[in-house]
Design a protein around this nucleic acid. Sequence first.
RNA 1: AGGCACGUAGCUCAGUGGGAGAGCGCCGCCUUGACACGGCGGAGGUCGGCGGUUCAAUCCCGCCCGUGCCUACCA
Length: 886
Amino acid sequence: MSGEKKRVHSIDPATIAKHFDAAGAEQRWDAEWEKRGTYRYDPSCSRAETFVVDTPPPTVSGSLHIGHVFSYTHTDVVARYKRMCGMNVFYPMGWDDNGLPTERRVQNYFHVRCDPRAEPEPGLSLSPATAKQRKERPRLVARNDFIGLCHDVTREDERSFEDLWRRIGLSVDWSQQYATIDSRSRHLAQLSFRDLFEKGHVYNTDSPTSWDVDFQTAVAQAEMEDRPRPGAYYRLEFGVEGSDRSFVIATTRPELLPACVGVTAHPDDERYRDLFGKSATTPLFRAPVPIFASELADPGKGTGVLMVCTFGDATDVHWWRERGLALRQLVGRDGRLASVTFGSEDFPSSDPDAANRFYAELAGKNVNQARKRIEELLRDPAGSATGSGAPLQGEPEPIEHAVKFYEKGDRPLEFVPTRQWFVRLLDKKAELLAKGEQIQWHPSFMHARYRDWTEGLNLDWCVSRQRYFGVPIPVWYPLDGAGGRNYDRPLVAEREQLPVDPTSDVPVGFNASQRDQPGGFTGETDIFDTWFTSSLTPQIGSHWALDPERHARLFPADIRPQSHEIIRTWAFYTIAKAMLHENCIPWHHVVVSGWVLDPDRKKMAKSQGNVTTPMPLIEKYTADGARYWSASARLGTDTTEDEKVFKIGKRLATKIFNAGKFVLSQTAEAGPIEAEIDRAFVAELHALVVRATRSFEEFNHAQALTDTETFFWTRFTDSFIELAKVRARSEEDPVGRASAVAALRLGLDVLLRLFAPFLPYVTEEVWSWTFADEKGEPSIHRASWPGEADFASAPAPSDAESFALGISCWNAINKSKSDAEVSMGRGVARLSLAANPATLERLAPVLGDVLAGARVATHTLEASPALEDGAFQISDAEFEERESAT
RNA sequence: AGGCACGUAGCUCAGUGGGAGAGCGCCGCCUUGACACGGCGGAGGUCGGCGGUUCAAUCCCGCCCGUGCCUACCA
């Protein structure tokens, strides 16, 4: 830039609005960016030139809240930085409409139920159900028709999300959209299953599985949560066969007594040692059950001896398998106690009549009802296994204990034997952990979440769900001559066949007439766990098996933004899938945002009823203001919704607008940057660029913002502009004037670009005034990130500290004005400035600018060796009269 | 019960082995020529507590207290 004349425009400030019209700018630039394709992904670029974002697809049936603005802004800031660094950014948007929330919403909205067996009605389109319709039975619709209705309902939700994303300026490429239930996602999910099947990673088995009795579906380990629940220890007296002995078992689930298949205690427990190998007799039902020793029994819990039921908990399942115990399944899929007959082979009893009499009181009841009733029965001495009075010893002792629930469920999970499909993961913990090591986690401690979860895994991934809406499992089963299903030879759809719906499509080698006929086939009606599809978001973006060339340009992705509570699901499963399919990691970085807390520091959640909708905040504080609040938060740190911070962001945008207006309205041509204070300012600016760039590279955008913001206020607007202002308009010093204008413009130019990822609107606005034209880059968001090239021609200052020194001196003069209670603009007729000799000497090159900025007419310098380096003392200041100030 | 994180000014939060910080709020002053949607100045904190390491600890280590999350806990 030095020497040569640049084509520089100044603006006429009169043509610029007095105040920044943020709302207008937001609307204008969003349309302009779309029109220009500013954020368009270029599919011709190689993987190395591309920065790939694995955008989290928001649950479209969820409500919009300020937390969405928060975390998506974090991602956008990174995407914008990378784009300015010259990367071809792939930043898609997905919509998560696969799964229960949408299923429920569609059911209510249209008053329909999905039924895979229903006749398809192509082109089905419904109106929202009327009150009258709601009183009737829900209409049954086929799966694909249900999916169509889902699109109808979610389109509206998607629009409101898109409105928000556009309003806050997400630099998403809107031509890259997908939905987790759309045909490509379904296709890829089924291809994923086919691939896992071919590689031997999936299996189906009939075994006790965690089951939600309300949703009536199997649930995976990752979807369970413990909730503290009140319960009670019921002390029940058991008999010992062929002996007078008895013992007492403490149980919290007396209703499972009829399902008791064994009794166990710790092998070293003296109290029960003599019982091992014998048979116990259960109270009420008089069932003989084996007594065995197990290390898993805790002598300190309850009475130290416990009953094994099918099934009370995971340990019961373990003992049942290990010991080959009987199966006496009581709780059915609906959560009610089944009808069983004591005295049969499966339910032995030494007194079947009494047992059946007691059980008749329980059959058909749900778990809670059965517990209440059996407590009463257990008070009846007639039920004793020993003839020594009521089986219930004393009163139940209330306790609070943890009970497993489906995270979306309302009643405790039960173990119910069902046939399910699983992805084998338990035997791959070590590889999964190794993959986690290859990924960079931001902040790094989030890696521990992944590690803990993976190490603690104790079940394979149950991927089948007994729901109706979702991606069908592409499998049929051959039927034998008697119509029995052969689960060991599943007919998994061929790759070329996909996508399929096995309830309407036909496996290769069969024809439609053989459906559900002996010797024919039957279609799987189960669907996939929604995570089975969501774990493929990087592959959905890259089109994976459907377009290997594109896949190679987009996979693995660079960043996966997400929140920490779904590390065990979304992150974990995505890593597992990439590993099982291609033995690689799905992305290089996981970027974890914290949560937004309400002003009382509680997590903002729809269920808590404390969510803040974002639009009013954006309208009040502008999109840039909302983004400022978001970007101020470090990754992984929970952040309080604090309007004060929004306000600061809005103020910052206004200040940038005004500073831009001032700098760009300087009419003089820019020239070489020669004045010492200009050079020193530029040197500090350069250092800022280095710091901010490093912060971005470390995924510490909050630091980059803080540094840029601090510099902008304290070094640029509050000081450099003030100190260079007079010279920038000086008629007598054309060289100094050109230098000042150049430095001011460079400062604005660089700071605008440093702010651009955070405040896309105001920076684009100011950029558009003259820089867009001068630099031939219509959008700041496509301009280059500041770097060495911007400073190549700026000579170093003779003293790196001279700008700082000038500011100190200027501040000292300001303080004297403040002390005298005169305005900063007041002229100073004369003053005496004291500093130590070395400081005075170093101040000399910038003193002229300082005195001009402070409007000092005459001054005297005083060398005071006693003063510290860099300290200034002002005395004998005489201020001009207000009227005489010019 | 284990793991992780956090605890700094009234509020929201930075920060570092050597001098305690920012913004907001508060107080005082200044209508100035980019900006009153401004500016200048000021008050305000035993950096959760107790020990230890060190010449030196808000920072490193240990213990404790408090908060949040993750994981475990159904006899």
